[in-house]
Design a protein around this nucleic acid. Sequence first.
DNA 1: GCATATTAAATAGCGCGCTATATAATTGCA
DNA 2: TGCAATTATATAGCGCGCTATTTAATATGC
Lengths: 155, 155
Amino acid sequence: MSSSRPSPSVIAASTPKLDAQLCFALYSAGLAMNKVYRKLLKPLGLTYPQYLVMMVLWQDESQSVSEIGARLFLDSATLTPLLKRLETAGLVARLRSREDERHVVITLTARGKALQAKAGKVQESVFCASQCTPSELKHLKDELQDLRSRLSGEA
Amino acid sequence: MSSSRPSPSVIAASTPKLDAQLCFALYSAGLAMNKVYRKLLKPLGLTYPQYLVMMVLWQDESQSVSEIGARLFLDSATLTPLLKRLETAGLVARLRSREDERHVVITLTARGKALQAKAGKVQESVFCASQCTPSELKHLKDELQDLRSRLSGEA
DNA sequence: GCATATTAAATAGCGCGCTATATAATTGCA
DNA sequence: TGCAATTATATAGCGCGCTATTTAATATGC
């Protein structure tokens, strides 16, 4: 099965060492990144996924749950409780759309908008922690985007 | 603060778009990878973190909780319940060390060892799904390992 | 018009991964 | 010896992220 790509047998002979595995590197880099964000976002009262949702809303302050989900590759089972926490924190409002009552439209509150200013240093701090040059950063980002889309079957 | 690296002001002007962010690419590639593994590991009755623990044990079949944690960058709060599930599944045994009763030594059972054979195709399948050449894969892995260690303050 | 299908969001339940804390065993030092 | 510090594991509680299912609203086909 599958012959248009380099033979998998090179890899699969036996279970490889952890050090040799891209997936473990990806997994543990993700955990490390999350830890960095946790400290930076604590003063804002946000988790990293909540911060992602806020970024999506700072770009476009009124979106349905599914629009947010499409941008973040997350579904309602993850977003619904997360958005309720943001609502409880007074950062967003949740309203049924009048045109189509199946949609719940998420809107930024004044506090939610105001938070953007406080979040300004977060990106800068993570950039410093990564100790990447802007071009390294862009390359790695592009490669990871490609990997994500291939793993998601968007090849 | 911190001047030996390229200026962060290039990045931090305002909140950047999601597409431009390495961290979001890392985060969502990790989720996508986990999804691929979930399907592949379901027949084995393992989650991805459980699979990582099994790989560590396949390399060295008797290790303390903290040794496993050091290899995977995970601590006891994550590993203890995970290892109990592997014990319930009959894949590992948990025993207090006699020399130092603070240590809990994890050992593979016969079933745990036997599972390695069934897990053989997993790496191959993920490799196919990633559609990377071996050299792309190695480069990306190296970059992610570097990123992880820098983010963890091991610079 | 009405039953059926589709869509959007919510819910239930599970397994991480974390912080903070607790418990127990060992070490170290006066 | 004895008592405080350290170390290894475990526990409590929270927030994702997932699958599977449910509820409600809209769209479609006869």
